[in-house]
Amino acid sequence: MNILVCISQVPDTTTKVKFTENNTKLDTGGIQWVINPWDELSLTRALELKDDPSSGVQKVSVAHVGPASNEATIRKALAIGADDAYRVDTDALDAYQVAAQLAELVKTGSFDIILCGIESSDYNGSNVGGMLAEFLDYTSVSGISQLEISEGKAIVNREIDGGKESLAVSLPFVGIVQKGIAKEPRIAAMRGIMMARKKPINVTAAKDIAPLTEVKEFEPPKPRPACKFVDPDNPAELIELLQNEAKVI
């Protein structure tokens, strides 16, 4: 059984994002790029399953749609433990275009479980996983916080409003992953970093697929009013402000 983990490259989550060219482009100067946090957790879970021989997982691959300059991020995934990697050589333009490229890639391989993060922390779209599933006509389950494999099926927990469901899903399927899927992301050890250098990154040419959306400009969020401090010995004043000034209680 083979697992493919789709990874997106995003600015480190502490980055104070800035824009250039009249707020039409992300200012990439000084940005530390990381694997999207949910994708890192998906990869960790996939590797945990592979470590357990009873799971039947033989290979964990990663896929990324992006230019050669993103290979450092792919190497990171290989260093963490992925067996091999695929890169579709094009700039990622929107979720639709990325998912369409990934679908072409999946069709040429043999993957039983495909994992995507619930969102990518840059454009917060929550779209690639579901789109990929629809392109492939695979079942998808979104918001999964647990993944096991048993008797050739994926056993997942899916979050629903006010609770959760445990599902058995036939393969192949696309699992769209959220918090809980793995506790902490696995970190690359020295040995992993050495080995990653020898692992293959298979580069494929992109299909000509147009995006459906285009970001035209960015705006910083509206500034918040300065904080009004209340005397800790007089919390009644806070209650009064919330009732009569902010009118929220």
Binding site: G130, M131, G143, L212
Partner: peptide, 24 residues
């Protein structure tokens, strides 16, 4: 809605209808 269900359905619908999505 941009909730659990909406996030799960919207992308599939997007491909089916070839409709661009703006989420959140």
């Amino acid at each position: 809605a941009n909730n659990n269900a909406g996030k799960a359905i919207a992308p599939r619908l997007s491909v089916r209808l070839k409709a661009g999505v703006a989420s959140a």
